[in-house]
């Protein structure tokens, strides 16, 4: 069927005004935008729909329905058992945004996410760069670096909390011996440093894998050419490797943002439990605390919606970035 793989023909047929609206919509969704599978792979839209349905069903049950439930909870005050509900309009949101501790938490989250992001990228970048320079024990080097990823966040959080516990932690007593008045229970800045370190430590390996792979993919010939021209390792990295791995860095930057915003909750729970005085209670940790510990479902739902909007924003950003810059056929 040569006609069916002719994009021009396909496009003309799909654009026919006689088609039902729903089919038109699907057709539009399947329109070739230069990425992914070509629409020409499917002569019939129902087949595409069928193939998409498992994914769509998963999204329906694990995203759209829960999101809708959250959305509806955000506008009510509800008793935990769900027996009584009072519609309160936007009151939950008004309360939220007028709450100084929520604003504090938002700033904290911004700080934490960005510092964590840059630190993770920086350290992972140096380690990935070093991979190439190491000739012996590369396997061992990589395995050690990847280990933290295999440790459950709660466990790694527990380890950090213990190491830096001012009463019994070996790392804390080393700091005390050096004259640092380390105490994450009473000094908010110490607590913030501690959760940042634990979050970064846990996530370096993820960035490392991507960066190491991206650096390996930089054509050897280019680097050799630069070397012949007299560029040292750092110079080669700056002028050859870095521009070529930039799309991956961009991708990791967004993934790190999402990680800092959403996935660090169990680490925070284990390391500081949001304290002292809420100084390490990030937005996502507040959702957990208000919803599951305090049973304030209305406020927790409103907070989830704020976070959802943020997540959607980042996703859009990520796709934009990938569309423009990432070329998977490096």
């Amino acid at each position: 069927m040569p006609a069916s793989i002719n994009p021009a023909h396909q496009g003309g047929r799909l654009a026919a005004p006689s088609l039902p609206a729903s089919r038109l919509l699907l057709a539009r969704m399947l329109r070739d935008d230069g990425t992914g599978l070509k629409k020409a792979h499917y002569t019939q839209t129902w087949l595409a729909g069928l193939l998409l349905s498992p994914q769509l069903l998963i999204l329906l049950f694990f995203f759209f329905i829960p999101s809708f439930k959250a959305l509806s909870l955000a506008f009510v005050q509800v008793d935990p058992f769900g027996g009584r509900e009072i519609f309160v309009g936007l009151q939950n949101f008004v309360d939220l945004f007028s709450d100084p501790s929520y604003r504090k938490s938002a700033w904290l989250t911004l700080w934490f996410t960005i510092v964590q992001n840059i630190a993770t990228l920086g350290i992972a970048g140096v380690l990935a760069f070093a991979t190439d320079q190491i000739i012996r024990g590369q396997v061992g080097y990589r395995s050690v670096l990847l280990l933290p990823y295999a440790i459950a966040p709660v466990i790694s959080g527990g380890i950090w909390a213990y190491l830096f516990n001012p009463a019994i932690g070996p790392a804390a007593s080393a700091l005390h011996a050096m004259g640092v008045p380390w105490d994450p229970n009473l000094r908010p800045s110490d607590a913030l440093i501690l959760i940042t370190i634990s979050a970064v430590w846990k996530h370096i390996c993820y960035d490392y894998i991507f960066l190491a792979a991206a650096m390996l993919a930089v054509p050897q010939s280019l680097r050799e050419a630069a070397a012949i021209d007299g560029a040292g390792p750092l110079e080669r990295f700056r002028t050859i490797s870095l521009p070529l791995i930039a799309p991956v860095v961009m991708y990791l930057f967004i993934i790190n943002m999402v990680y800092g915003l959403f996935d660090t909750f169990s680490i925070i729970d284990a390391v500081t439990a949001g304290g002292p005085a809420g100084s390490t209670s990030t937005l996502v940790y507040k959702v957990y605390q208000d919803g599951f510990i305090m049973m304030n479902l209305g406020s927790s739902a409103a907070q989830s919606i704020v976070l959802m909007v943020l997540a959607v924003l980042f996703t859009v950003l990520q796709f934009r970035a990938m569309d423009r810059k990432v070329n998977y056929q490096v």
């Binding site: 213990y162 190491l163 516990n165 019994i168 932690g169 994450p184 284990a270």
Partner: peptide
């Protein structure tokens, strides 16, 4: 304050 990572009972 025992904080996270240590328990008061332990202390």
């Amino acid at each position: 304050l025992s904080g996270q990572g240590a328990s008061p009972s332990q202390l």
